[in-house]
Design a protein around this nucleic acid. Structure first.
Lengths: 155, 155
DNA sequence: CCACACCGTGAGTCATGCTCACTAGTTTGT
DNA sequence: ACAAACTAGTGAGCATGACTCACGGTGTGG
């Protein structure tokens, strides 16, 4: 029955989520990072130095929370606060040397991880996997942030 | 280049992890549950009433943590503590009526979720997705709990 | 009977995230 | 040009969740 296959696939996905999550958390902890802090770092990586308010918007958390995250990242030397060139109220969060190196190392590590994960997987299977994941992602994106009444069960 | 495809696929997986995680957390919160508490519930569902020490082993957390989780689940009426029939030191954690109903509803919701996620996906793509995920899961399982020096980067 | 096992509590840590109130700067509207 | 209105960041305080170690009571079993 087709339903069983779907359940099966969903189970796989749920297990994947757990495993990746754990692995991520563990690996970040080794670097003295946490998930939220890393999200911030990635935002910075994508957009360059930015004021905290923009980070708050991008990460969808309150300004106060960003202050806390930046505090932590600053304390461990990944980012530093710089004066905003034109708005003296604002603070520009920028990478330190170390922060930049760390993020680059993470990108590199990610590449290695991808290679490890998909090693010896034939190209067509990889394509098909990508296509399938793409479909699923579209559906998931559709029911994520805005709506509130629509969805129902997940795990 | 093949590496790019892999990075791509990994990015998809990472996004999937985030989306599913958020969705799960939100949906569980609606039921008055958290992820850890739900893990415990699932363990109970799989193995039936069990003493806390077994839960601790199954969930790989300390006994103290289990006490806390069970406290929470008991307070919200999902489980209850029963005396162990033969070992009077031990406590059997069992579902309440409500807990059982909730877990069954979650299973049902999961089925619906799977249908939603894979709706209109041709069978062969589903198969291929499953196969690909299976491969990845095997690799991930391999580097999860025991080893400590081996892996490297993830997100 | 005594070492060990099962639970529970106390106390404390860390991460995340919220609100409220406040300061210091910036804009806007006359 | 200047006050009113708003914005950026943060101090203080609170809650929740997950987890730990250390300690103690009670029961088991050799």
């Amino acid at each position: 029955m087709i339903g069983d296959r779907r359940i099966n696939a969903l189970d796989q996905i749920l297990e994947l989520v757990v495993l990746i999550n754990d692995d991520m958390t563990r690996s970040l902890a080794r670097d003295g990072l946490t998930v939220s802090r890393t999200h911030l770092l990635w935002e910075l990586r994508r957009h360059g130095p930015m004021p905290q308010r923009d980070l708050a918007a991008a990460l969808r958390v309150s300004a106060r929370t960003v202050t806390g995250l930046v505090d932590g990242l600053e304390a461990t030397g990944f980012v530093s606060r710089q004066p905003h060139p034109t708005d003296r109220r604002a603070t520009l969060v920028t990478f330190t040397e170390r922060g930049l190196r760390t993020v680059e190392a993470m990108e590199h590590g990610q590449r290695e991880f991808a290679d490890l994960l998909f090693a010896q997987m034939p190209a067509e299977r990889l394509d098909c996997l990508t296509a399938g994941l793409g479909e699923i992602l579209n559906r998931l994106r559709g029911l994520d942030p805005a709506r509130q009444q629509p969805s129902e069960g997940d795990r």
